[in-house]
């Protein structure tokens, strides 16, 4: 039996909104530690890995591990029936064929309840190898979104070059080219606006603009985003949550 209560429906709504274009059907793995989701997009180029830990719920109970097969388009329809500020409760029995989604307004005078039919999903699970990343860049998530948006109209690819001096995003297309360079900076009163670079060696990766921009749907979940890069390896784009994380992996574009 799963029972998870979130004080604000907006967190779950935003998470689902952020991944539903990449992933259609997926299993939500429920354990005593929390809710997790791991799924590749249909073209097998990117991977979504979500963790909502139990301590992020105001009430959480999961006696037995459950895999809830969910169609995210359908879940979105149901989540839109609730307001952002509503208290959200997710409930499923051990052999339930549906997930019960309950909304309660803050005045506690309106309760609504919806049931989402569950599916049997035979999902491939990927083992993500331990990677020694050459660079870790933490920057404002809105800045990352802006760069991806701006470069989207110029090129299908963005190259990220990271050195000690800064991180440079470059794009090259039919109409011309562009680049944005960010230098590490710090501001004690506004840490969310800082750019931080941890580097063991310079690294360069070329990545699909379309996918990077898709990851930016998670911008509203966190003020900061961390990009982890290693040569000829998938990039890790991580949005930390107050209790858990939303991670995206994207395979690089490599020269033949």
């Amino acid at each position: 039996m799963l029972e998870g209560k979130l004080e604000q429906a907006s967190l779950f709504k935003k998470v689902v909104e952020a991944v539903r274009e990449l992933v259609q059907d997926c299993n939500f793995d429920c354990t005593e530690n929390g809710l997790a989701l791991q799924a590749m997009d249909t073209s097998h180029v990117s991977l979504v890995s979500l963790l909502l830990t139990a301590d992020g719920f105001s009430e959480y109970r999961c006696d037995r591990n459950l895999a809830l097969g969910i169609n995210l388009v359908s879940l979105t329809k149901i989540l839109r029936c609730g307001n952002n500020e509503d208290i959200l409760t997710l409930e499923a029995g051990d052999s339930a064929d549906s997930l019960v989604v309950r909304f309660e307004n803050t005045q506690q005078d309106r309760m609504s309840e919806y049931a989402l039919k569950l599916m049997d999903i035979d999902q491939e699970h990927l083992g993500i190898p331990e990677t020694e990343y050459a660079a870790s860049i933490t920057m404002p998530s809105t800045e990352f979104q802006r760069i991806c948006r701006d470069m989207q109209s110029i090129s299908e690819s963005i190259t990220i070059d990271c050195t000690k001096g800064g991180v440079k995003f470059t794009c090259e297309g039919d109409i011309g080219s562009g680049s944005v360079t960010l230098k590490p900076n710090s501001s004690a009163d506004k840490p969310e606006l800082c750019t931080k670079i941890d580097l063991s060696e310079p690294v360069s990766l070329t990545l699909s603009t379309k996918y990077l921009l898709n990851f930016c749907k998670a911008t509203g979940l966190s003020q900061q985003v961390t990009l982890k890069l290693a040569d000829e390896n998938p990039i890790l784009v991580e949005y930390p949550l107050s209790a858990g994380h939303l991670r995206f992996y994207l395979a690089p574009k490599l020269d033949e």
């Binding site: 590749m40 097998h44 180029v45 990117s46 991977l47 491939e124 699970h125 990927l126 083992g127 993500i128 190898p129 690819s157 070329t206 699909s208 390896n233 998938p234 992996y249 994207l250 395979a251 690089p252 574009k253 490599l254 020269d255 033949e256």
Partner: peptide
């Protein structure tokens, strides 16, 4: 032009 790789080439199925 660089070629988009499949994620399966980096991560193994379990």
């Amino acid at each position: 032009t660089p070629i988009q790789n499949d994620l399966g080439e980096f991560f193994s199925m379990i």
